[in-house]
Design a binder for these strands. Structure first.
Length: 254
DNA sequence: ATGCGGACCTGTTAGC
DNA sequence: TGCTAACAGGTCCGCA
């Protein structure tokens, strides 16, 4: 999309996580895309006069298709490019978002308090230790809190805790600086491995080339309830934390 | 200030 | 086979 012009944006259903702003098309139509970026799980399209903010939620997908492709049921908006292609957003659950902002995205209320990017140096043991100091919440819930760790959802929170050998119910504030270091390294390694494998395709996710990811074949605990731990053979246990499925090995994680 | 549960949606699957 | 309930990759908000 970099360097292309947006002929127009067509919104067919404004009822996403937040209503798509009524004036968005007017702001965006005819804009030149300067750059496409990302912060946490928010996708940012720099249009010069402002930014489009996109989020895929849980079931959202973006695909590049020819302009003539007829939309189907859950195709809620199109970004029509001057090239003859369009970027189509599909999202059955409508947990995704399309917003417009004229302030710098880093100052936007949704991104203002996000933790540093997990693969950057600023996300380190020190940061994690400071953010969870004195907190009684389960460490897994801390990993799911994007003011503490950004870009990690349910799958990778489970996998990173296994890699760090930390029990997901451990009280966050009780982790030593050393264990914070182990956990930070585990988060970075988990994300890097997943990226290398092309991500995790359970149902909706496909890469920009249309190919599924393969990281789900490497899960150590996620969705492996009752199956033997790949390291020690103990059956993987499943519990619920914060209404999310949580998987761990009682043999390996303490 | 912290932490928990509820809310937003629809599609798929497990269980009866 | 058909119906129903539970659950799914996210994250904000309000209340205790």
């Amino acid at each position: 999309m970099d360097g292309q012009r947006i002929d127009k944006v067509v919104v067919r259903d404004r009822r996403l996580r937040w209503p798509v702003p009524k004036n968005l098309e007017g702001q965006v139509n005819g804009a030149l895309i300067r750059h496409v970026d990302r912060r946490g799980k928010y996708l940012l399209i720099d249009c010069g006069a402002g930014w489009l903010i996109l989020h895929l939620g849980m079931s959202g997908r973006l695909r590049v298709v020819p302009k003539t492709t007829p939309p189907s049921k859950h195709d809620h908006f199109d970004i029509i490019l001057s090239s003859g292609m369009l970027v189509r957003f599909t999202d059955p659950r409508r947990f995704g978002a399309l917003l417009w902002t004229t302030q710098h995205p880093s100052l936007h209320p949704l991104m203002r308090h996000l933790a540093p990017e997990p693969l950057e140096a600023a996300f380190d043991a020190d940061w994690l230790h400071k953010r969870i100091r004195g907190r009684s919440m389960a460490i897994k819930l801390a990993l799911m809190n994007n003011e503490i760790v950004t870009g990690v959802g349910n799958i990778y929170a489970n996998e990173a805790l296994f890699r760090a050998r930390i029990n997901p119910r451990t009280k966050a504030g009780r982790l030593s600086m050393e264990r914070c270091g182990t956990l930070v390294a585990a988060i970075k390694e988990t994300l890097q491995c997943a990226i290398e494998a092309g991500g995790s395709s359970l149902r909706d996710f496909f890469g920009t080339d249309g190919q599924p990811g393969y990281f789900q074949q490497q899960y150590m605990v996620y969705a492996r309830e009752g199956k033997p731990c790949r390291i020690c053979g103990t059956p993987v246990r499943s519990i619920r934390l914060g209404q999310r499925s949580t998987f761990y090995c009682t043999g390996c994680q303490h």
